[in-house]
Every structure is written in C-alpha cells, then in structure tokens.
C-alpha cells in the first residue's frame, strides 16, 4: 500500500485514473487477491454501514451505560433547524445513528475504528443519496478512504490511546473528505486537499470519553467530524487548496498525538471525562453496568 498520499496522487494522475483505482490495484498486489474479491468485501461493508444507519434512525438504541441514544431520531423528527432538509442535516443524523448503534453493542464497520465509525458511512451514504451516486462509485470511495486511512496508520496513528481523537474521528473526517471529493468528481489532487483541509480542522483533538466508554462525547464528535468533512469537501470541490501538503499534515497529527499527555488519550483522565459532571456521570453509570 502507498505510504504517502502524494505518491498515490502522482500514480493516479500519471494515468488519468482515480485514487480508488490505484488503491484497489495496490491492495490486490499486496494481498495476492483479485480486485473483484476486494470490491466484494467493500460491498459487504457498505451494506453493513447502510444497515447501521437505518437501525440507528429508529431511535431504539441505548448505550450500555444509558448515557447516549435516541438523538439521531431526535434530529430527524424534532423541531426543524435552519438546515433541515439539506444534505448537511441528513449527514449529521446518519453519523449520530451509526455511533448510537455502536455504543449499544450493535454491528458496525470499524472505519477506521469503532469510535470513529459514524463519519465515513454518514458522509458517503448521505451524499450518495442526495447526489444520486451509483453504488459502485460508493464502493470506489470506500477504497479511496481505505487508502487514506492506510497512509494515516503508517505515518501517524489510528488509535485514540496513541493519538487522541484526532487519530479517530479526525482521521475518519480526512478519509471521508478525500473519498467523497473524488466520488463527486474531484481530481486526485483535489481529494488530497480535502484530506488536508479536514485533518487540519481536527489537529489537537483529544480523546476524553466519560468513564473511558465509547459513548460521550464520541457520538457527537462523529457528527461534528462529519461536519468538518463536509466543509472540507465543499472547499476542495470549489478548487480551494491547502498550502501544507497533505502528508505533512498527517505527519504533524502523529507528532501532536505522541506529545499529547496520557490524560487526553482514551484514559478518561482529562478533558470532558475529568470535568465534575463527567466524573459524576461516569461513576453513576459504571456502578450501573456492574450491577448489570
């Protein structure tokens, strides 16, 4: 697999093809499997993503601790805000939905992780619906997202325990931004800028879940992560570029993660988890979990 987004962009543009194509070819070569087999695995992943969105929208999922759940349905059916009826509103609801299913021990696709699993399905399935994108192009977008995530895994990290939330919902936002930009007709170069634009907006983001549970703020951070991805897509498709090359942005995300205090890396020792209310809620809920 590629170790730099820039290498993949060069390889794709030299042949006038997409990041999805070079990603699938590299994967086929690495794994010794035909491209069609990889596409089939991605089709299955897409089906699970759509199912998780649909399940979450029912509003029937409550997390193990009871801290989160039901907000995707509230966004869909509650009082209309200024963005009601827009793809933006729909994507936010989808992100909440998937992450609520995850928190309830439902079945999701970890992409790149379970904690950041809401962003990519929300952005890709939401925009695919509003822009009438055929399924096979969404499958391509998943391959592009996989390529971007693989580079982040190599150069930085995809683990909140290592790099904070910038390595989970932040990386997911970068993956979703690059993949959707290409899915909607952007060039590989534009997709690269979309990744950089999304990732720059999440630099320094800490991982501070209450009680260490993938619930609060994770559910909402997937929604705001998706919002950042949408902002990056909109800018990149308009031709806006980001001056710092995407691989350098990814590198610095890794560097910030390594220098982040351990309190801010999934340990529930800092951030929202360590606020007076965060500590109280975690204490109450963990007692409840132990009682069963």
């Amino acid at each position: 697999m590629y170790r730099a987004i820039a290498d993949a962009i060069r390889a794709a543009e030299a042949r006038g093809t997409t990041l999805a194509t070079v990603a699938l070819e590299a994967e086929a070569r690495d794994q010794g499997r035909p491209v069609e087999e990889i596409r089939e695995a991605l089709r299955r992943a897409l089906a699970v993503m759509r199912d998780a969105v649909a399940q979450g929208m029912t509003g029937e999922h409550r997390s193990v601790s009871g801290l989160v759940g039901g907000d995707a349905a509230k966004l869909q059916h509650g009082a209309a805000g200024p963005l009601a009826g827009t793809p933006f509103h729909d994507v936010l609801a989808r992100a909440l939905a998937v992450q609520e299913v995850n928190a309830a021990m439902g079945v999701i696709v970890a992409a790149p992780t379970a904690g950041g699993a809401g962003v990519l399905p929300a952005v890709l399935t939401g925009l695919a619906q509003s822009q009438a994108v055929p399924d096979e192009m969404v499958v391509d977008a998943l391959a592009t997202a996989g390529l971007i995530g693989a580079v982040v895994a190599e150069r930085a990290s995809l683990s909140g325990a290592e790099g904070g939330c910038q390595a989970e919902t932040g990386a997911a936002a970068g993956m979703a931004a690059g993949a959707a930009t290409e899915m909607l007709g952007g060039s590989p170069t534009q997709a690269g800028h979309a990744v950089a634009l999304a990732q720059q907006g999440t630099l320094g983001l800490v991982c501070d879940p209450l009680g260490g549970l993938v619930e609060l703020p994770c559910v909402f951070r997937n929604a705001t992560g998706a919002a950042i991805a949408l902002a990056a897509i909109e800018m990149a498709l308009a031709g806006i570029t980001f001056a710092i090359p995407v691989d350098e942005v990814i590198d610095v995300m890794g560097e910030i993660g390594r220098s982040m205090d351990v309190r801010y890396r999934e340990t529930a020792g800092g951030g929202l988890a360590a606020t007076p209310t965060g500590r109280r809620l975690a204490r109450e809920r963990l007692v409840q979990i132990k009682r069963g």
């Binding site: 994967e27 696709v109 970890a110």
Partner: peptide, 22 residues
Amino acid sequence: MVSILDIIGPVMVGPSSSHTAG
C-alpha cells in the same frame, strides 16, 4: 503492511475496535 480491508473493517459488534473487536 496495512490493508485497506483492515481500515474499512472489521465488521464488528461495538463499541470499540481496540477494546471489543481486538
């Protein structure tokens, strides 16, 4: 070597890829 199917996956029961699926 990171595989794109490791990134877009696994399909798993939540809530944590490291603490549950791993």
